[in-house]
Design a protein around this nucleic acid. Structure first.
Lengths: 337, 337
DNA sequence: CTGAAAGCGCTAACAA
DNA sequence: TTGTTAGCGCTTTCAG
């Protein structure tokens, strides 16, 4: 069964193909009667426009590509909701590709999107080289999410990671914590800023920053926590660079027969579903993911209108969500209950 | 900056466009010297073939569409890995769309994919009407994942949900549990079979099945558990239809000051990251997600070769992963520690 | 092994 | 408001 084409519809409706085209694109300059006839014919034939042909002729796809750093990280799922909301309101569809945490896979995904001629590109936490991103931005609007890129053509939307770290340290200091350890996020998106914010905030409170190099993974958090447990003078609070890592730390603490927040306070970042489960109830920093997604989509839409405008670098204000994994600092050494 | 076309490459390489086309499609019938010249010209111009044009002429995209029931469910992330592995080995790219748990969004995603002329469609846990799926299957190869559809054109890959439930009940019965409650998954993918498998297995053990209607969500699991806690004679074990729901139940139990597995054993389904976190260590049923993804992708590839072959309905054997949320049944009523 | 020519299904001036 | 006419960038016969 061959798919009907515009010509088939035109023939059936007794009009020309261009008229059908106009109706399909919802042009106002069509008489009501013609429009009705075309729509009826289209329905009867179960006609659907061929996007490839449309795109070849019009040079646009009404499609934006979205490349994920990692499909397993729930942070991006929520960001996608925001993107979707704005995109669908503007008649754009979204195509997702998974970078699987590997730069070369991301690169292939990016090439693939460009081959498909998406109208714009959204990069969610990708670790692609700046050069690659900039080269892409020379071809089409690009917005990087959760990643700073300083270039006039690349828009960015990030949360204020330094501020987030400050909120965390303030909260912990207020609870009486003085020895706070940060498990860093390695080369992950935003981890450098979170780390710097942590150091600054600690100094501001007159405290000595303590840092373990980590990753945005459960394993890294677990390993770091195990190291801390063997420390001569373990900290009273742990601030992990994201929820996954924080949960890893909580797992290690639990396995050691200790508990949160009695022995250690633990704070994560991202406020993903992981943190909000009643079984976990983790204190975490909310980045305003929905807002981030919306802002990113709006950025590329506006650049579609104004290709050479100056870069937009939006900094979203994060918020600390206090739950049950933070409490007063224990006094003295660790004693199993 | 205009994108170079095949003609530009041909001109630069001093050959005809058709020859460039052959080289781009890696045809063996090209002399080494021509091939080299074309490849060099393409590289120098930074040429990338226009997929829309290619598709318009060849009628294929080398692209498969994947529609997710929900991007927030980690189950599908893993399935995607399997799909990706097989797809990329065969030169196919994957395009993902999120159904956001709503049939109409799924429908829009499906239409969108068909408009884009993807070569085949993979449906991961979608709740689309059978009619819609079948109509799609008449246009292109379709494989439904985690969902049974009985139609000669629709391939399916599911895990054996009945068997999964049997494994769970066997395990719990062996631990001495006799009052086991199943929190069902409502209209979610596979929940009917899990429920039936549960009932059968209970009867096989001479036990009375107990069921609460639920959903594939944390909230549903929590609500069900709260109901059970108020029960005259609460069960000693809870088998939730998926990990999310099981974690919800664990949260409610924890909030009530009770613990797992001392007061209640809890089992989930899917063995997602949620279950394997050290902080959770939940006993759960592994569906062999990677294998499921691979099988689904292989199914559509084979149907691309043999469009009218009989439907393939693969049933993947699940495995019970025993962790720390199941233990011997408590004897007697619940007493807080 | 290489080139010429005819579309794929649609959009976009331009004319009428 | 509607129809005519060129393409969009590529693949695919078919000759040579």
């Amino acid at each position: 069964m061959e798919r009907p084409t515009m010509d088939d519809v035109a023939q059936r409706a007794g009009v020309s193909r261009s008229l059908v085209s106009l109706v399909m694109r919802e042009s106002p300059r069509v008489s009501d009667s013609s429009r009705a006839a075309v729509q009826r014919a289209a329905r009867e034939l179960n006609y659907r426009p061929n996007l490839a042909a449309r795109q070849l002729a019009s040079r646009r796809t009404l499609t934006v590509g979205l490349i994920f750093y990692d499909l397993h990280n729930l942070f991006f799922s929520e960001v996608t909701e925001g993107i979707h909301a704005v995109a669908s309101a503007s008649g754009y569809r979204i195509l997702i590709n998974n970078g699987r945490q590997q730069a070369d896979v991301e690169r292939a995904a990016l090439d693939s999107m460009i081959d498909l001629q998406v109208d714009a590109l959204l990069l969610a936490g990708t670790i692609l080289d700046d050069d690659v991103v900039i080269a892409a931005a020379e071809q089409l609007p690009v917005c990087a999410i959760s990643r700073a890129i300083d270039h006039p053509l690349v828009d960015t939307v990030c949360n204020d990671n330094r501020l987030g770290s400050n909120l965390v340290v303030d909260h912990l200091a207020e609870l009486g914590h003085r020895r706070i350890c940060h498990i860093s996020g390695g080369d992950g998106a935003g981890s450098a800023e979170r780390r710097e914010g942590f150091v600054d905030a600690m100094h501001r409170h007159g405290l000595e920053p303590m840092i373990i190099d980590g990753h945005f993974t459960e394993q890294a958090g677990a390993q770091a926590a195990r190291d801390l447990l063997n420390h001569d003078d373990p900290p009273t609070a742990i601030y992990a660079a994201n929820d996954l890592s924080a949960l890893g730390a909580m797992g290690a603490i639990k396995q050691a027969g200790l508990s949160v927040p009695e022995h250690f306070s633990v704070v994560g970042y991202d406020n993903t579903a992981l943190a909000s489960f009643d079984y976990v109830r983790m204190t975490s920093v909310e980045q305003q993911r929905l807002h981030i997604g919306e802002a990113a989509m709006r950025a590329v839409l506006s650049r579609l209108d104004t290709p050479r405008r100056a870069a937009l670098n939006e900094m979203v204000v994060p918020e600390l969500i206090v739950r049950s994994t933070t409490g007063p600092a224990r006094s003295g050494p660790i004693t199993a209950r």
